[in-house]
Design a protein around this nucleic acid. Structure first.
Length: 457
RNA sequence: UCCCCGGUAGCUCAAUCGGCAGAGCGGGUGGCUGUUAACCACUAGGUUGGCGGUUCGAGUCCGUCCCGGGGAGCCA
């Protein structure tokens, strides 16, 4: 028995006889002597309409087949005589695999995002989340495809780390000691404190200074008590790291990367993206097309401050003041990405005082070769920099920021043995998905979101 | 962590000034129909988030706790 996916069947050009389709019932409509079953198997957004005559074997259980039930339908794919669909399955037999009783929570109507989060195990069966997870999969593929085409080596950096001061937020502590143990870290599994990684960057740099161009794509953990629509305690980050790249080359790569993903999705996820364009964000498709085609804006931090001050003087009301040497507030980033330019904007050459020790000090001694990519609606999508490759400068920066150099001995040795200019960035995969779909909450672009106080599923 | 908003049927929501707890969808029963989130009629379904208080009377007012959301900070 042939078992094609519904996607294959609906994309087909000719009738197919004697096939088996298995999936979940989205709705049942009864007519005189037969029923319509709308079947979805997750392969695409569209359902397959199955026409089940009450005389067909198995049809006596039709009354038990409610929305959500898992069924198998054998039959022939034939042209549909009615409007609304090109093909339908004329059933020759029906099997109820797993019934869904009346309290099945998903109904044939719109549900709130909050409710769907409370049933994370069932929400992939909705149109919206089905579409999202297919897009997520394609985007993930596009990431690997881009870097592979560009000659990058995919490397895996550790999830467990012993470094508790990577300068990127609070860490989750990992221990193998019993909960009530009085013993110190020395008695623990690694003989020292252990944490979940907040970034693979420090470990990726040595690989870049060996293999040339590398990237990681893995889970990242932040124990920040952040309660916003764009922060999660566990998220997936893409971190390329390139030897002999300066900040400009870094930005060029970042732009080419985001454009490549946008183009891939436009080409391979048209139907799923159309759903988001219609129900979630009417700018979704236009924004993707713009990202794919138009050059991003590039702006020095110094110039951004000047623009923001000019905007304020022209009557733009900001809650927070703008001055050189302070980090930009969310309202400032949104103004630049949404109102001023209306497209992705690179800000670069930030004041050294507000950036971590590993970013390369510019010749003005005042700024570092850092760059952020700000995009409309989600804000910071990428953060990156050229890395400090000069040993003495790096040591001085660590000292200035009060860091103990001892645990970083291997990171410092990189600057001793064949040091070279290099650069890289980190991109939050979930934020990229928010940007391309228009979904406003990070909890709705990941299957099982981890946020403060939320570890169900 | 701070500020604001919310929690009523399986789901989405309503309930005037503190005065009988409601509708649509979903379920059941019956009808109708190559139907398209089908349609029509009937029907079942409630500890109004928890605890305490004010009151003749609390979904509504007060206190407190829990949960959720939005905004901010932090960041990707």
């Amino acid at each position: 028995m042939h078992t094609p996916s519904i996607k294959t069947l609906l994309d087909g050009e000719s009738p197919v006889s004697s096939i088996l389709v298995r999936g979940w019932v989205r709705t049942r409509r009864d007519a005189k002597g037969f029923s319509f079953l709308e079947l979805n198997d997750g392969s695409c957004l569209a359902n397959l309409q199955c026409v089940v005559d009450e005389a067909v074997p198995g049809a006596q259980r039709l009354k038990e087949i409610l929305t959500g039930a898992a069924v198998a339908v054998q039959g022939d794919l034939v042209p549909s005589p009615a409007k609304g669909q090109r093909w339908e399955l004329k059933a020759t037999s029906l099997e109820l695999i797993g019934p869904a009783p009346e309290e099945y929570p998903l109904q044939k109507k719109r549900h709130s995002d909050e409710f769907l989060r409370s049933i994370a195990h069932l929400r992939p069966r909705t149109n919206k989340f089905g579409a999202l997870f297919r897009i997520r999969s394609e985007a993930s593929f596009a990431v690997h495809e881009f870097f592979r085409t560009q000659g990058f080596v995919h490397v895996h950096t550790p999830i467990l780390t012993g470094s508790d001061c990577e300068g990127a937020g609070e860490l989750f502590r990992v221990t193998a000691l019993p909960r009530d143990s009085k013993e110190g870290a020395a008695a623990d599994f690694f003989g020292r404190e252990a944490f979940l990684t907040v970034s693979g960057q420090l470990e990726a740099e040595p690989l870049a200074l060996s293999l040339g161009k590398v990237y990681t794509f893995g889970p990242t953990f932040r124990a920040e008590n952040s309660n916003t629509a764009r922060h999660a305690a566990e998220f997936w980050m893409i971190e390329p790291e390139m030897a002999f790249f300066d900040l400009t080359a870094n930005m060029e790569l970042a732009e080419a990367f985001v454009k490549a993903v946008a183009r891939h999705l436009l080409e391979h996820c048209a139907a799923d993206l159309a759903l988001f364009n219609q129900w979630v964000d009417p700018q979704c498709l236009a924004r993707l097309a713009q990202v794919a085609q138009e050059p991003f804006e590039r702006l020095e931090y110094r110039e951004a401050v000047r623009l923001l001050q000019a905007a304020r003087d022209a009557g733009e009301s900001f809650q927070y003041p703008v001055a050189f040497g302070t980090d930009l507030q969310t309202e400032h980033e949104r103004y630049l990405a949404e109102k001023k330019f209306g497209k992705p904007v690179f800000l670069y050459n930030y004041p050294a005082s507000i950036k971590p020790f590993y970013m390369r000090v510019n010749d003005d001694q005042n700024t570092v070769a850092a760059m952020d990519l700000l995009v409309p609606t989600v804000g910071e999508l990428i953060g990156g920099s050229q890395r400090e490759e000069r040993l003495e400068v790096l040591q001085a920066r660590m000292q200035a920021q009060g860091l103990d150099p001892a645990p970083y001995w291997w990171y410092l040795e990189l600057r001793k043995f064949g040091s070279a200019p290099h650069a890289g960035f980190g991109l939050g995969f979930e934020r990229l998905l928010m940007f391309v779909t228009g979904i406003p909450n990070i909890r709705d672009v990941i299957a099982y979101p981890r946020t403060p106080g939320n570890l169900e599923f």
